[in-house]
Design a protein around this nucleic acid. Structure first.
Lengths: 148, 148
DNA sequence: CATTAATAAATCGCACGCGATATAAAGTGA
DNA sequence: TCACTTTATATCGCGTGCGATTTATTAATG
């Protein structure tokens, strides 16, 4: 009885709900982040900067699992908004050092309500959240281990 | 001691790894789907059609948790590739009926190896996969319930 | 020390994914 | 029946994400 094509059914996919939830996340964040004049991707860049104070682009790319061709234009926009500064590292001029402006640092306070409000959209039991977190990072670590 | 800003740390986010894994999924699928001349989004549209034979755009949007402004251009491309046909429903001309061409139906056979190969990229224990699946759909159902 | 290799960013072109809006067709009610 | 609303699809403009490639700078090697 078992269908030869069962693996191609949408309902049997694990990647699809991941993809769909990710899209949904972006949608749910949008109205909250509009208040900060940030997109979701810009927001996670800011999260790194609120923690690290000073990073280069390579660090950001690795922290966010993104490529330079995504991050470069992103930083240009954040700079245009006055949230970050970019300067060349004098010790190694290939490095671009990214720092927060005062305006960017101040935004952290205003951002505090974002995680609160997002938590309301997707309520999970604490054990579910923990398990989800663990599995997702397991996938991330598996998936990012290769490539020359 | 507990940091006022703890909720803004990237490591304390649940949405971020979801977003990162979703990006990673698209990356992993790409070389496999290149063989079928499909993108990931086009692939999930085809998955629906391999099951349903005949749908309208609204059905596709709901099945894939996407909006018409994403799906309309997608269908145009699948049509250009010769995988689908679009005809107006004579009973209600607002409806666009989407069907597979022979070429599109035949692609199902070739697609069989895709789920196999993807499974190699992200290996999870069966219980983990089940739990992940359950939690993701819980989130999808919560998140898509509102909006006027 | 000159040539080659490696590295960090940036650029290019394409395909989403979205909110907002427009268009066209059907349904609704006074 | 005729304005009004609802519904299905399409259009517009913007911001990602990506593979592939380029540019600028530093490191490595003979």
């Amino acid at each position: 009885m078992s269908d030869k094509y069962a693996s191609l059914r949408l309902k049997n996919q694990l990647c699809f709900p991941l993809y769909a939830v990710s899209n949904m996340i972006t949608r749910k964040y949008k109205p909250l982040l509009d208040e900060l004049d940030l997109t979701y991707t810009q927001y996670i860049v800011m999260m790194v900067l609120w923690e690290e104070k000073q990073v280069n682009e390579k660090f950001l790319c690795e922290a966010l699992y993104l490529k330079s061709n995504t991050v470069t234009p992103l930083l240009k926009k954040l700079q245009a908004k006055g949230y970050i500064d970019k300067t060349k590292d004098k010790a190694d001029e290939r490095n671009i050092i990214i720092t927060l402006t005062k305006k960017g640092a101040d935004l952290k306070e205003k951002a505090l309500c974002v995680p609160e409000n997002i938590a309301k959209e997707f309520w999970l039991a604490p054990e579910e959240a923990t398990e989800l977190y663990r599995i997702l990072y397991k996938m991330l670590n598996q998936g990012s281990s290769q490539n020359p």
